[in-house]
Design a protein around this nucleic acid. Structure first.
Lengths: 229, 229
DNA sequence: GGTGCGATTATTGGATCCAATAACACCAAC
DNA sequence: GTTGGTGTTATTGGATCCAATAATCGCACC
């Protein structure tokens, strides 16, 4: 570990990376001692990190023989995305049900304006993927923040740790910008539809649109292209 | 701690109790050293337990000065129950959508038969509250198990740690058995309605009924009677 | 040759020790 | 009198050490 941050955080992010990029595959043992030596730290931060990852659902315990990455297949991800859709749908319903203050509506509109700015020139350049990533994250997070129900974010945290399950996971295809343009523009239009439903105070419509937004991510098979199933 | 179990589990349940019964109120500091001495164990299991409780959302960190119980008011609980309703609704929808195997339907019916047995004599004796508690838990857990989406259970675990938020929290009134009878019988009838919708393959109805089942727990003001708001 | 029991070994969980850090208090200077 | 800085102290995070436990390997007996 060349990073100079605190050992605890180092180990946490290092393990997440090792699991995410497949260096440690499901079925392989993750022992405290071996991991500690591998990362050049003591066993203690490794222990802490493993307990944390277990709580996040990224690893599972193997009795007295350490941990192993949780086996994650397409079905698991589909389920996690469905959970996200339902919870974000609940958030959208709440936001639509209580009438927003002007200041709050303006903040939402500003985020959406960022989205419009990305698409208005009619095509993508490669930086636009980064811009969309940022905009997309902002929209989803602001919606949760406006829902005034912290339990929703809390329940979502776990799913968001699973690869491909969070709203941040877009599985962007950096080679086919035109295809991404039409696809992500569609997602952006769904965002705007949710916004319209919220402004109209149509709670059930806002919820359904938000759910469909997640379902679109499921039916979009390209999400799984990077996954070894 | 007089218990002879493993220190780690001891500390975890001890802290949960101390927080649940109000011995440690929100705002009070929970330090590793003080807690370790109080429970007669080393600082290590206390540290582990506090990290776990933080992941569960029961305590929050106070910078470098330990932890404190998360302030939980009626609004928080309402939000958590709503999350539970949405997630259990999703489970019910899944169960209704895929057609159950006979063996699975029988298991559900058996659980419901336990419920019928509790109510058929037309009134409650005090043991019936325990029996209903067990039956209620079985029903909710079986539904989650049958949903074939482990992400739902995972997302629910956090909420279930909040007091009064889980399906196990019924806030039973041990003094007014007759009032409990009519109230819990209503809950039981809701369970049966969900079962009927599942057997009929009516997914949207099953989901709505399950949501309403949780909403009923919200509108049931007695849930909050034990809460210092 | 297979199975069961025992011993050894590896690995996690707990305790104690040490270092780094952040809060608090006190003192001095403006 | 107030404010800023410095020193002390308390508290968490990390490392090392120790004990308990479970798994594996080997040997003996059936």
């Amino acid at each position: 570990m060349t990073r100079s941050a605190k050992p605890g955080q180092q180990v946490l992010v290092a393990l997440r990376r090792l699991i995410a990029d497949g260096t440690i595959k499901p079925g392989m043992r993750i022992g405290e001692i071996a991991t500690a030596e591998r990362l050049g730290v003591s066993r203690m931060p490794v222990r802490t990190a493993l307990r944390a990852l277990e709580h996040e659902g990224l690893v599972v315990k193997l009795g007295a023989r350490g941990y192993t990455p949780r086996a994650v297949n397409a079905e698991t991800i589909r389920g996690a995305i469905e959970v996200r859709g339902v919870l974000e749908g609940l958030a959208a319903r709440h936001v639509a049900a209580r009438h927003l203050q002007d200041e709050e509506r303006v903040r939402l509109a500003q985020v959406l304006a960022c989205g419009n700015a990305i698409f208005e020139k009619g095509h993508f350049v490669s930086e636009d993927l980064d811009r969309f990533y940022r905009y997309n994250l902002d929209f989803h997070e602001l919606l949760l923040a406006l829902s005034s129900n912290p339990s929703i974010s809390l329940a979502l945290e776990r799913n968001n740790h699973l690869p491909f399950a969070s709203a941040a996971a877009l599985a962007l295809d950096w080679d086919d910008l035109d295809a991404e343009y039409v696809h992500l523009r569609h997602a952006h239009e769904e965002h705007m539809a949710v916004f319209d439903a919220i402004c109209a105070g149509n709670a059930v419509l806002a919820e359904r649109l938000m759910r469909d937004h997640a379902r679109a991510a499921i039916s979009n098979g390209r999400i799984f292209k990077g996954l070894r199933v």
